[in-house]
Computed example of a mutant assay.
Amino acid sequence: MTQAVPFLTLDALAVGASAIVTQVAPGDVAEDGVSLSRRLMELGFVPGEKVRLLKRGMPGGEPLAIKVGNSTFALRRFEAALISIQPE
């Protein structure tokens, strides 16, 4: 019997923890016709990529400082919620 891996998104990751991207959910389409999920994937949030939550902003926990590859990005929580992860 296999155990199901719990569904987790990047916005729920603990500060300092690492994870592997499993999926990027479809997001809203911007005025220029490009979807948010496509923009996130262009930044490097692709399945199989390792990510790490470096810090949460104060107050309210936004933005999130996320390291992906050799780059660090600031994401809003709703953007991070589109990225499904598997904790390491």
Rank of each mutant, 00 (worst) to 15 (best):
L10M: 05
V68G: 08
D28M: 12
P59F: 07
L8E: 14
V29D: 09
D28L: 14
M1C: 06
L75H: 05
T22W: 05
R56N: 02
D32Q: 05
I85W: 06
D28I: 07
E49I: 00
I20P: 00
S71V: 06
G57K: 02
L40S: 10
D28P: 08
I20S: 12
S84Q: 13
R56I: 01
A74K: 10
D11T: 02
P59S: 03
E31S: 12
A25M: 13
I20F: 09
L43M: 15
A81D: 15
T9P: 01
V21N: 04
L53T: 01
L10I: 02
E31C: 06
A4L: 14
D32C: 08
L40V: 04
R56A: 07
V46R: 14
A25W: 11
R52S: 14
V68L: 13
R38V: 10
R56L: 12
G44V: 04
L8M: 15
I85R: 04
T9W: 02
F45I: 03
A12T: 14
F73G: 00
D28E: 14
P87K: 01
L43C: 12
M58A: 12
D11A: 14
R39E: 13
S84L: 09
G27C: 11
E42T: 07
G16T: 00
L82E: 10
S35C: 07
S71H: 12
P6W: 05
V15Q: 12
T72P: 00
S71C: 08
I20H: 09
K55S: 14
L64W: 04
T72H: 01
A74L: 15
E42P: 02
G27F: 12
G48W: 13
A65F: 04
P63W: 02
L36S: 09
G60E: 09
D11Y: 07
V29L: 10
G33A: 14
Q86F: 08
L53M: 14
R38K: 09
L43H: 06
R56P: 09
V15A: 06
I20N: 04
G33Q: 13
A25D: 15
V21G: 06
A4Q: 10
M58P: 01
E49L: 03
R77Q: 15
R56F: 07
A74H: 12
I20K: 10
L75W: 04
R56C: 07
E42G: 08
R52F: 00
L75P: 09
R76G: 13
F73L: 13
S84P: 00
M41T: 06
A81E: 15
Q23Y: 15
I66M: 11
L10E: 03
